[in-house]
Design a protein around this nucleic acid. Structure first.
Lengths: 111, 111
DNA sequence: TCAAACCTTGACGCTGGTGTCAAGGTCAAG
DNA sequence: CTTGACCTTGACACCAGCGTCAAGGTTTGA
C-alpha cells in the first residue's frame, strides 16, 4: 500500500484523515481495513465514484446506520448500483463458466 | 459502436478483419456479436488483455474447438483467469448483498 | 464531373488509477 | 547539531480505453 494510493483514495473522499500540528496525516484504526476493502473493489473493476457511493453500506457495524442525508435519491443510486453489480456478477459468472466448459472439453479430448 | 472502438479492439487482437482492394476493412458476420461480447466484458471490468486470453473459450459453436497451439501454459493461464473471475464474482456478490442489506435496513427503519 | 459521405492512418487530448521524482518541512538518533 | 528517514505538496509520466480532429483516398449520387 503505497502512500500514493492512500492519498489518492483520500482525495477521492474514500477515506478521511486528521492532521496534527505536524500537518502529518493521521489515519484512524479503521483506515487499514477500509483501504483493503477499497483495493478489493478496485481490483474487481469498480471505479472510485461507485465505491464512494456504496461505502456507507459497507461499514463493519452497520449499527448505528447512517441515517442522515439519506434522501430518496440516495436510495435510488444504491438500488441502481446494486443492480449494476448483479449484472456484472452474471456476466462474469457466465464467462467463467464458459472457460470452465472449455477447459473440461480440452481435458476430455486430451483424455 | 464507434469505428474508433472497433479499430481499438482490432489493434488489441480481439477481432480480425480482411482488407479489400480498397484497403477498407471487411468485418465478418460474426464480428458484431464479438464486439458486443467484448463490450459486455469491458463493462464488467475486464481488460483487453484478459479478454483476449479468454476469447477462444467464448466461441459460439465451440465445435470445432481450437486445439492447436493449446499448450499446458495456455491451460494454466485459463485456469488462473477462471479463478480470478471467481474471486471477482465473490467480491461483487458479497458487496451487492451488503448494499441489499443496507437498503433493507433503511426500509425497516423507515417503516 | 463534382461534391458529399464514407474510409484510411496518425496525432493529440481526456479520465482514471499509479509510480516517481523534486523541493521542502519534521523528527529521532547519533 | 547534524544526518538520515520520514512526512508534505506538486509536477511529470505511464497505460488503458476512448473521443476527436486532420489530411488524404474512395465511393456514391446528382
Amino acid at each position: 500500500m503505497s502512500p500514493r494510493q492512500v492519498r489518492f483514495y483520500e482525495a477521492r473522499g474514500l477515506i478521511t484523515s486528521t492532521r496534527g500540528a505536524n500537518n502529518y496525516r493521521d489515519y484512524g484504526e479503521t483506515a487499514l481495513g477500509r483501504v483493503q476493502q477499497i483495493r478489493e473493489l478496485l481490483d474487481a473493476g469498480l471505479s472510485t465514484q461507485v465505491i464512494r457511493a456504496i461505502l456507507p453500506c459497507l461499514e463493519s457495524p452497520r449499527d448505528p446506520i447512517v441515517f442522515d442525508g439519506v434522501t430518496s435519491e440516495t436510495v435510488a443510486v444504491l438500488e441502481r448500483e446494486r443492480d449494476r453489480l448483479t449484472e456484472r456478477v452474471d456476466v462474469l459468472a457466465r464467462n467463467r463458466d464458459a472457460i470452465g466448459d472449455y477447459l473440461a472439453e480440452l481435458q476430455r479430448r486430451a483424455g
